[in-house]
């Protein structure tokens, strides 16, 4: 694209740049704010007014015991629920992509449903169910609730990958003497693994992040988002910023790895 020569063109280009800058600022200023305040030395209970730069918070990220507990608990919940959801969701995706059977149409619709239903509806109805069944709400109920929405998510993500899968590869493997078991582990699984990993990363993030559904089903349990929400009423320790920044860095690193992986794949496929 050559540089615009007319005045009007210059103005339009300038306006576009400003617009883009504002858009990016809107997206990233809150995040930058969180990161910045992880280096603040707070005065009082609220870490919301800039005082001065310090690394103290980073030296001691786990000083707030309640926060640390909640953070670890969230990681545990995410790990368990993601593992279960990835297995179940991937199986659904493969089944749906590979076989067309009576009811596979409605099933596709049912898969999307949990993702489009407002969280408040899912959260409250699950909670009502647990209450009705006299199930004590806590760690297990939160894991169950998370698996519920993660399964849909994994199934849809993996299916996108599986949809382009060449099923004659499975025929070829069987033709060469591989049992269905060996065919799956040596051919099908390695080829859809990138899709499964992407689904796992995203649903792990969804689990750590979830607030509404978790709140309804956590009982007295405190997860990371719930703890932050609760503590915000009385205080806001800088460790919140530290842990949040850690999650952010971790996510960005994962995305970068995924991106590089994709690039390597593409170069190899050239």
């Amino acid at each position: 694209m050559s540089a615009p020569t007319t005045t009007r063109g210059k103005v339009a280009r300038w306006a576009l740049n400003v617009y883009a800058a504002l858009g990016l600022a809107y997206l990233f200023v809150p995040i930058a704010w969180i990161v910045m305040f992880s280096f603040n030395e707070p005065r009082g209970n609220y870490n919301i007014v800039w005082q001065r730069f310090t690394l103290d918070n980073w030296r001691d990220p786990f000083s707030d015991e309640g926060l640390t507990d909640a953070f670890v608990r969230s990681l545990q919940i995410a790990a368990i629920s993601t593992s279960v959801a990835v297995v179940l969701g991937s199986m659904i995706a493969i089944g749906l992509a590979r076989y067309s059977f009576r009811g596979s149409g409605p099933l596709n619709f049912l898969l999307v449903l949990p993702l489009t239903t407002p969280e408040i509806v899912i959260g409250s109805s699950l909670a009502a169910l647990f209450l009705d069944w006299d199930v004590t709400r806590g760690f297990t109920t939160v894991v169950i609730a998370h698996i519920m929405f993660q399964v849909s998510f994994v199934a849809l993500t993996v299916r996108a990958r599986v949809r382009g899968f060449d099923w004659t590869l499975e025929q070829a493997a069987q033709d060469l003497g591989a049992t269905p078991f060996r065919t799956f582990w040596t051919v099908t699984f390695p080829l859809i693994l990138p899709g499964i990993l992407a689904a796992a990363l995203l649903s792990f993030a969804l689990s750590i992040d979830d607030f509404i559904i978790t709140l309804f089903n956590a009982g007295s349990l405190s997860t990371f988002p719930i703890y932050i929400d609760g503590s915000f009423r009385v205080r806001f320790p800088p460790q919140v910023n530290v842990l949040a920044t850690t999650i952010l860095v971790f996510s960005v690193a994962m995305m970068a790895i995924g991106l590089l992986w994709g690039l390597r794949d593409r170069r190899r496929n050239r």
Binding site: A172, D175, A178
Partner: peptide
Amino acid sequence: TPPYKRNVNTVFQQYALFPH
């Protein structure tokens, strides 16, 4: 008999080579 127990092999139209 399932294909993996038959001693015949196929060359597929699009070859179906394992890309990985």
